[in-house]
């Protein structure tokens, strides 16, 4: 019995030391990771709609969009948001910028781990650039009769990106319409 207790204590000591080291490393790296993420989000928004202030609007627990107003003229420049949907093997996160008429200004794939060589090509400029100027109705892949040319061998990935954007744009639109109606009613 005493022998087992001794073994347990030794194992425990090792675990405690390991946990201590990890806690220390985590305290150093965590803030760094956080700022990196925040910086990246700000940078991506700035790239999509430059020179604007962004105001966050929370729509659902897991989704919020940003209203972009010009830093100087305070004029409405558009909206940005990050949609997510399951693609082929991973959840794809796409950030998009919209103009005030809800046409896509540009999109950027933020996070994906789709199949290298197939779905992973969705980050390429040749794929993302075709989204520019599309209305939400046009966000349909060619396999479903729309104008978005899907990636070869990765229809599921392409469809996931297009439909996730479409759904969220419609959600934002509905939210804004509702707010406007409320304002009119008041």
């Amino acid at each position: 019995m005493k022998y087992y207790l001794q073994l347990g204590v030794i194992l425990m000591v090792f675990c405690v030391i390991a946990t201590g080291i990890l806690a220390y490393v985590n305290s150093v790296t965590e803030p760094k990771i956080e700022t990196l993420k925040a910086e990246e989000a700000v940078k991506s928004r700035e790239e999509l709609i430059p020179g604007c202030d962004f105001e966050e609007v929370k729509l659902r627990d897991d989704f919020s969009y940003f209203i972009a107003t010009d830093r100087e003229t305070k004029e409405l420049k558009g909206y940005t948001f990050t949609s997510q949907k399951k693609g082929y093997g991973s959840t794809i996160k796409t950030m998009a910028g919209l103009d005030p008429e809800f046409r896509v200004i540009g999109i950027k794939i933020i996070d994906q781990s789709e199949t290298p060589g197939l779905g992973a090509n969705c980050t390429k400029e040749s794929f993302t650039s075709q989204f520019a100027g599309k209305t939400p109705e046009q966000l349909v892949v060619d396999k479903d009769g729309g104008p978005i040319k899907s990636l070869s061998g990765a229809t599921i990935t392409s469809r996931a990106i297009a439909s996730s954007l479409k759904e969220e744009i419609e959600a934002i639109k509905a939210d804004l319409d509702k707010k406007q109606e409320q304002e009119v009613a008041e």
Binding site: F14, L22, V25
Partner: peptide, 18 residues
């Protein structure tokens, strides 16, 4: 395994940060 897992976690966190 504990020793190895600790170093792996260190690498994991450091890589995520840098």
């Amino acid at each position: 395994i504990v020793v190895i897992a600790a170093f792996v976690s260190v690498v994991d966190m450091t890589m995520a940060a840098f």
